[in-house]
Design a protein around this nucleic acid. Structure first.
Lengths: 324, 324
DNA sequence: TTGAAAGCGCTAACAA
DNA sequence: TTGTTAGCGCTTTCAA
């Protein structure tokens, strides 16, 4: 390569990496040689010396079944991929659903294959988080890591306030008996949205009116049936995710309840499913694009040796459609 | 590291890589030093000399939205991850949904980050395939790559015969007017299942009775509505995937058709959704675990410098539940 | 602005 | 069975 362009290895390297101290002539010669020989840098060799791999791993801390069903992950991943690409870093995905997976991910990371980690959907007490901390690898989470909020910086929607917005809205619509279907309570979305619900309803948020789902469509369906059994006279329900809300709508239809006439249904996320349910789902919009953008920014800062960045919490927005 | 264990670098390397020519004493010394120093090999350095990275990329050739909704991908990925792990190779995932994505994947691959590629859900004429071929990187596909069957080895279910099984079954059940919802016709599953359907029905498979879906739940829903409009008297439908069948069931219910009394519904895949529909879905079981196993085996052979392995086509099985 | 040279951490061929 | 040595392909001082 140095020979092909008639300059030294050092100059080639400088030209390729945009070093300003390269003459126009040399730069042109290198450019030409690259085209002629179809040259591609060997990233391993580069990594060996720079200690950088140019790749970031997005780790999905969730049994795969659930994960993939949720359109939010798509969006998060797509946006992150794009943002990282502008800095010329690749995003790869790994799933850490069980112990075996987790060990593999840690091995991969310890092998020095990545410069940083983007954590998705961590549950409280996930052992992967501890492993990551001891690796001292830059890591940022989408959504708080319960219990490690001070350690792992994150970007997240304001789940609690979002839940309040929706619950308040249901109350304002004159609903008297409002239930909720939560996500898993060891996730920030599960926990904080329930808290927001309780903030508004106070003592009216009885245990009977709270059912736990698992962020899947089927989980929402099952939880809705359960709620109808426990409180047949409920007239409103705040569901902790759009996908679960879609399941809840199916259950309500099956049980002959009209939405929103008999029961008002509010979702959370404003994901693609919200726009394809019957009736269209009234929901809380999460600024997922911005969550992804911010996480990527923070991770890149961390990788560049910056201080631990401040976590950011982004505002949500009520989106009123037909179901409430 | 060599110093810590009191032997030479060469011996350390041999001990770590399981070379038989290492004395028990030396091996023990190295082992101890590894524990004491918390040593981890630098994979970049190793890759630089071995020309192996120990990672394989699973490339999803599909706009992400569709992809992730389908439980089949989960299974494929989970099985592949596990099989590869036994050979100590990591599986990472990348999505190639649009041109930008594709370019990124190719760059990553050209960067020498992976030893091989597992292709998922390629569409006919996907430019990525050509790029991959010119990279001369080992590649194997789950499901045939339409148009490159002779070039990219694959493992797949016998889609055509599976479709025949289901269609024959519907006929045997006395259904007289059977329609079908296909997958995209530039995918092997879309095309071959339609062909199997036509094999059995012959001239009765008129254009009016064929609607195209896109492997999503919503696509199945929309296609079913369309079919009901075009042929209100249909009494059976073979749907090219379970997820689309779930959508079709919703459409039928909405239109007041009973399943299976008025309309018999057959799916394809036997994925998790088939067991959670109402009524439970009669479907065609695809041996996806074996597909994943075989693809991994073939890819590993290829990576080890073996000849281009024979593609394998695996038999399907009719699973009778409630919907037909 | 450039070339020369010194490694990055590892494996593999060779000699002992 | 082991130590020695020569790179793998690249970046990055250091001098020039």
């Amino acid at each position: 390569m140095a020979r092909a362009s008639g300059v030294s290895r050092g100059t080639v390297s400088r030209a390729l990496n945009g070093d300003p101290y390269v003459s126009t002539a040399a730069r042109a010669a290198v450019q030409r040689a690259v085209v002629e020989t179809g040259y591609v840098v060997n990233r391993n060799a580069r990594s060996l010396v720079t200690q950088r791999t140019g790749t970031v791993v997005m780790v999905l801390c969730e049994p795969q079944e659930k994960l993939f069903e949720d359109p939010s992950f798509n969006l998060l991943m797509r946006v992150a991929t794009r943002r990282l690409a502008t800095k010329d870093v690749a995003l790869v995905m790994m799933v850490a659903g069980d112990d075996g997976d987790r060990e593999r991910v840690v091995r991969y990371l310890r092998g020095g294959h990545a410069d940083g980690v983007l954590l998705l959907s961590t549950h409280a007490g996930d052992p992967l988080v501890g492993a990551l901390e001891s690796l001292a690898l830059p890591a940022v989470a989408c959504g708080a890591v319960l219990g490690r909020e001070g350690v792992i910086p994150y970007a997240a929607a304001d789940d609690r306030e979002g839940a309040r917005q929706m619950t308040r809205y249901l109350v304002e619509q004159g609903r008297r008996k409002i239930a909720t279907i939560t996500g898993p309570l060891d996730t920030p979305g599960g926990l904080n949205r329930l808290e927001g619900f309780c903030d508004v309803l106070g003592r009216k948020a009885t245990k009977k009116l709270i059912a736990q789902g698992d962020y899947t469509r089927h989980g929402g369906y099952a939880a809705m049936l359960e709620l109808l059994k426990r409180a047949p006279d409920l007239d409103g329900v705040f569901v902790g995710s759009d996908l679960m809300a879609a399941g809840a709508l199916a259950a309500l239809r099956e049980q002959g309840r009209r939405v929103p006439e008999d029961v008002a249904v509010g979702g959370f996320d404003d994901s693609a499913v919200a726009a394809s349910t019957h009736p269209l789902l009234t929901t809380v919009r999460q600024p997922l694009e911005r969550v992804a953008q911010e996480t990527v920014r923070m991770l890149l800062e961390l990788i560049d040796g910056g201080e631990r960045p401040e976590s950011v919490v982004l505002p949500t927005e009520l989106v009123i459609r037909e179901s409430a």
